[in-house]
Measured scan of single mutants.
Amino acid sequence: MASQGTKRSYEQMETDGERQNATEIRASVGKMIDGIGRFYIQMCTELKLSDYEGRLIQNSLTIERMVLSAFDERRNKYLEEHPSAGKDPKKTGGPIYKRVDRKWMRELVLYDKEEIRRIWRQANNGDDATAGLTHMMIWHSNLNDTTYQRTRALVRTGMDPRMCSLMQGSTLPRRSGAAGAAVKGVGTMVMELIRMIKRGINDRNFWRGENGRKTRSAYERMCNILKGKFQTAAQRAMMDQVRESRNPGNAEIEDLIFLARSALILRGSVAHKSCLPACVYGPAVASGYDFEKEGYSLVGIDPFKLLQNSQVYSLIRPNENPAHKSQLVWMACNSAAFEDLRVLSFIRGTKVSPRGKLSTRGVQIASNENMDAMESSTLELRSRYWAIRTRSGGNTNQQRASAGQISVQPAFSVQRNLPFDKPTIMAAFTGNTEGRTSDMRAEIIRMMEGAKPEEMSFQGRGVFELSDERAANPIVPSFDMSNEGSYFFGDNAEEYDN
């Protein structure tokens, strides 16, 4: 993207840094990872977990959730003011799984939030270390993106479920800051804005008074975040219109849905970061690795190297396929839920299948599930090659597409044709070009129609051997075009429920 120079890199967003050079960025990201790792080690000690239990991804998720809940100030305040039966607002906890007599047992633990905050700050040299908290939120978000298709949420806001490739980060909490905003897809931002506008339509006082002023500035800020994701002048001009509207209503909703559809071809720039579970960072720190000293990046080879040398386990339900569970977590670790499966298959070195073909449910185990038949197995999170994460949407291309997802959002900077089903997408653009945004709409449609099938995206960008740390010898991959490109292809993934 041309304006790259004016933006802070995501590592800076990730670490609240002012302008830093590459070495400083690597050190501050490393410091953040160190903090998460030290916190995780301490929690495993508190909970008396064995090494194996500490490497269980379900335990990692519970521990991450506990610290996120302990620092969720708004919710904590709300819980104190609106006490609900049987919930102690000062405590947080969740299921911890232990191996007892050759069987997995679930144990519900409860801790004072104050105590968890103390352990977290102690692991982070006394700081609140917001960057580390956001990092864990993005890992949870990436896992949700890989596990669930947001059909219901899309339909509720009037969008087409086939636009799911635009929904990265749709389950990120509001408090995820600049680093969170960077990884949100165009569809996620559109959905947040539509929800806001709908509230304004239904509630006369939404934009009024002292609160209304705050609401208005939040609305304009979200519009600017979305505008910054678009790469064409016409899309940005249309966002200006939406932002400046005196009284946002149905016309703005129409414009936003139009823009979301246009992003299936004229893709937005959305950041991709490899955020790993805390149970990967903990053992690495415990083994003596100093992330701050060595430096770390979320968008280069580092996460690949770390996963190459990590042992992570997962509980497996009786009829689940461990290899499929591994694929789910591998995609989440690489922030690749909406990437082209052919690119992923090449990088991973084994075939990556669409969601609907995987015999696996989510990673988390519900409290009512029976533990008797639970097994555990090693997650295979290694890769054959590594590639640089991208934040450009890439230019655009036609490809055989599917009944489910009709476009992709690249996660890796790797040369390819970008699949999208042009006739299906263009069919949504018939007729409606009147109104105050008509010239911009016409211009956007013209650009979409001009998108050429034979153009290559990320020209000359390749993948790298894991021994090639400096990215000196790019390998331009070859793809098996007979395979499906979309992950949520004609899909039956479970729906995400809060």
Rank of each mutant, 00 (worst) to 15 (best):
A2Q: 10
E11Q: 03
Q12K: 02
Q12S: 00
Q20W: 07
D34S: 03
Y52L: 07
L56Y: 04
L56T: 02
I57D: 06
R65Y: 10
L68W: 01
F71W: 08
K77V: 00
G93S: 05
R106M: 08
L110K: 03
Y111F: 14
K113N: 13
Q122E: 02
A123K: 09
D128P: 00
T130K: 14
A131S: 15
A131N: 13
A131E: 06
G132Y: 11
H135E: 09
M137L: 02
I138G: 10
I138S: 01
N142Q: 08
T146R: 03
Y148G: 07
Q149D: 11
R156H: 09
Q168T: 14
Q168E: 09
S170D: 14
L172V: 09
G180H: 03
V183I: 01
I194E: 12
I194T: 13
R199Q: 01
K214Y: 14
T215V: 14
E220T: 09
I225F: 14
I225V: 04
Q231I: 02
A234I: 01
R236T: 05
Q241T: 07
R243N: 15
S245P: 01
N250L: 02
E252M: 11
I253T: 14
I253G: 08
I257V: 12
R261L: 08
G288S: 04
Y296H: 14
Y296W: 12
L298Y: 05
K305A: 04
Q311N: 02
N319K: 02
N321A: 01
Q327S: 15
V329P: 15
W330Y: 13
W330L: 07
C333Y: 13
A336L: 15
R342T: 04
L344D: 03
G349Q: 10
L358C: 08
T378C: 04
L381S: 04
Y385W: 10
I388L: 12
T390P: 13
G393R: 08
N397R: 00
V408M: 00
P410F: 05
R416M: 12
N417P: 15
P419Y: 03
P419I: 01
K422N: 04
T424S: 02
T424F: 01
N432V: 02
F458T: 07
V463N: 09
F464Q: 09
M481P: 02
N483P: 12
N483M: 08
F489K: 10
Y496A: 01
